[in-house]
Simulated scan of single mutants.
Amino acid sequence: MSTMKSVRTGGAGTIEVVDVERPVPGPRDALVRIRACGICGTDVTFLHLGGMPARAHLGGDLVPVPLGHEPAGEVVEVGAEVSGLAPGDRVVVNPQAAPTGIIGCGGRFGGMSEYLLIENAEVGRSVAVFPDTVPFDVASLNEPLAVSLHAVNRSGAGPGDKVVVFGAGPIGLGAAIWLKLRGVEHVVVADVIPSRLEKALAVGADAVVDSAEEDVIARLTALHGESANALGQPRPGTDLFIDAAGAPAVFDTVVRSAKWGAKLVMVAVQKKGEVDLGGMLRSELTLIASQGYPTEIFEVTPELVAHQERFAKLISHRVPFAEASRAFELALTPGAAEKVVVTLDD
Rank of each mutant, 00 (worst) to 15 (best):
T3W: 13
S6L: 11
G10T: 00
V18R: 02
P27F: 00
R28V: 04
A30I: 13
C40N: 07
T45M: 04
F46K: 01
G51T: 14
R55E: 06
A56G: 09
H57Y: 09
P64C: 00
L67V: 05
G73R: 03
E74D: 15
E77L: 14
E77W: 15
G79Y: 06
G84S: 14
L85G: 09
G88Y: 03
R90T: 09
G104R: 03
C105Y: 10
F109S: 01
G111K: 04
G111L: 04
G111N: 08
S113G: 13
S113K: 07
E114K: 05
Y115M: 13
L117M: 10
I118G: 00
E119C: 10
R125Q: 15
F130V: 12
P131N: 08
V134G: 11
F136T: 03
L141C: 04
L145K: 01
V147T: 07
S148N: 01
A151T: 02
R154H: 03
A157S: 07
G158S: 14
G158F: 06
D161P: 01
D161R: 02
V165P: 01
G167T: 05
G167K: 03
G169S: 05
A176K: 07
L179Q: 03
R182G: 04
R182L: 08
V184D: 11
E185S: 15
H186V: 00
V188P: 01
V192Q: 07
P194S: 08
R196A: 14
R196Q: 14
A202M: 11
G204V: 04
D206N: 09
D206P: 00
D206E: 11
D206K: 04
V208F: 03
A212I: 07
E213G: 02
E213I: 07
E214R: 06
D215F: 10
D215A: 12
R219S: 13
R219P: 00
L220A: 11
L220T: 10
A222L: 06
G225W: 14
A230R: 09
L231M: 14
P236F: 11
G237D: 05
G237T: 06
L240K: 11
I242R: 00
I242C: 01
A244H: 00
A245E: 04
G246Y: 06
A247L: 12
P248T: 15
P248F: 13
A249H: 06
F251A: 10
T253M: 15
S257P: 14
A258V: 15
G261S: 13
K263Y: 01
K263F: 02
M266F: 00
V269H: 09
V269A: 12
G273Q: 10
D276P: 00
L277E: 08
G279A: 05
M280L: 15
M280G: 14
L281G: 07
R282G: 13
S283E: 12
S283F: 10
L285P: 15
L287N: 09
I288R: 03
Q291M: 10
E296S: 02
E296R: 05
T301P: 04
T301C: 08
E303C: 03
L304E: 06
R310Y: 00
F311E: 05
L314T: 09
S316E: 01
S316D: 01
R318L: 12
F321C: 06
L330R: 09
A331W: 00
L332S: 15
E338L: 13
K339P: 06
T343M: 02
L344F: 14
D345V: 04
D346S: 07
